[in-house]
Write a protein that binds this DNA or RNA. Structure first.
Lengths: 203, 203
DNA sequence: TCAGACATGTAAGTCGTTACATGATTCA
DNA sequence: TGAATCATGTAACGACTTACATGTCTGA
């Protein structure tokens, strides 16, 4: 079995929610998980082939309605096993490469004004992101509370081609919301840092 | 001029603090900047060559004391110009790939216990990191307050081969400390998230 | 004397991204 | 009829990372 990387597990894990196509995976990640993950076609399709080759998934040539051929993939027992094993292992701690902090640190050679400009610019960007996250979180929160899943939520879950039952829907909403909370709290911390730094550097 | 990537600017920027060798750069990043950046030899040495080729730095074959040949690199006017231009541009927003959140999200298919295990494990790791960061921050804070730079601080700045004057030293300490504050606040936010998630999932 | 820090570099590999190529279907 | 979305794929490239190779100097 070939050396297995994170994308493999990401895709395998998405198949473990429900069988779907490469296109579905791309859209789901793009729309619902983009605050913590990304995948692109150039990676997805070869990975799906690889999963099939390794017996971790099977291709079910599902030709939904009059559409073009959709290749729907379903996780196998073996794939499920491998995925569950991976899930049980602690996540690797990410290699950190924060360009903003790099710029900030390296600006230390110059007058404070240069560093302040960097931080102010960062602050503006983070504020935009925060509002975006909060909007999404509000939509999801409302859906979970009321048990109704309007168009907006389905957009966030990209649920048009992969039918989910109510329980799955609620569960997926809940987990997307919790990951969004992570994003919100992280952004808030960054904004607090901006405040602190601006205070220190303007003293 | 070849297509220039982040590592080039990171290294160029470190040269803009003071002339130094590839080995110095590696150690400085490893010891003082590891909470937000990394570089490895396989990248540093070819990059330094590239900088010289592009006229952004010059090699000063400085043979310090009886040691093995040390190739010390000094940034050029042109390099400084290019670096300053880069510094003035907003940082690219990083492509996010958070393995922990991926695992957490994908664990949503299973009973809450599985998700809780992931979060608890994360919490423990983050606590260790937090203590580490706090220790370093305390050392740096003390140095800045008292104006004295004991061995410990010099370790954090890896200041044995690249002599700094007092002003540079204070400045560098201050900026490392401020980036550390970013790390601390980020980790605290993650720990707060763990708390929140554990509460939600055990209800 | 020998372990460990000092010091520089190369080659191959990995993983993911970008750009390209192709074509069907839907709806305004 | 033509733009947008649905849908699948490949090839080349880019940006590091890992493993390897080599040798010096210092201090216990």
């Amino acid at each position: 079995m070939s050396n297995i990387k994170k994308s493999h597990f990401a895709i395998l894990g998405l198949l473990s929610w429900q069988p779907q196509s490469g296109y579905d995976i791309k859209k789901l990640v793009e729309v619902g998980l983009s605050h913590f993950w990304n995948e692109n076609y150039g990676n997805i399709y070869p990975t799906l082939d690889g999963l099939v080759r390794d017996g971790l998934a099977v291709k079910e040539a599902g030709n939904t309605s009059g559409r073009r051929t959709r290749n729907v993939y379903r996780i196998t027992q073996q794939g499920q096993q491998l995925f569950d094993d991976w899930l049980a292992q602690p996540a690797d701690l990410p290699i950190v490469r924060n360009e903003l902090l790099l710029k900030f640190f390296l600006s230390g050679r110059l007058p404070n004004k240069a560093s302040l400009r960097i931080v102010q610019n960062y602050q503006v960007h983070q504020q935009v992101i925060l509002e975006d996250y909060r909007r999404s979180a509000a939509i999801l929160g409302r859906a979970i509370e009321t048990g109704t899943y309007p168009q907006e939520v389905m957009m966030l879950l990209n649920n048009d081609t992969r039918p989910l039952n109510t329980k799955q829907k609620a569960r997926q909403c809940k987990f997307v919301l919790l990951t969004l909370r992570h994003g919100i709290m992280a952004v808030e911390a960054r904004l607090a840092w901006c405040q602190e730094v601006m205070q220190v550097l303007t003293e």
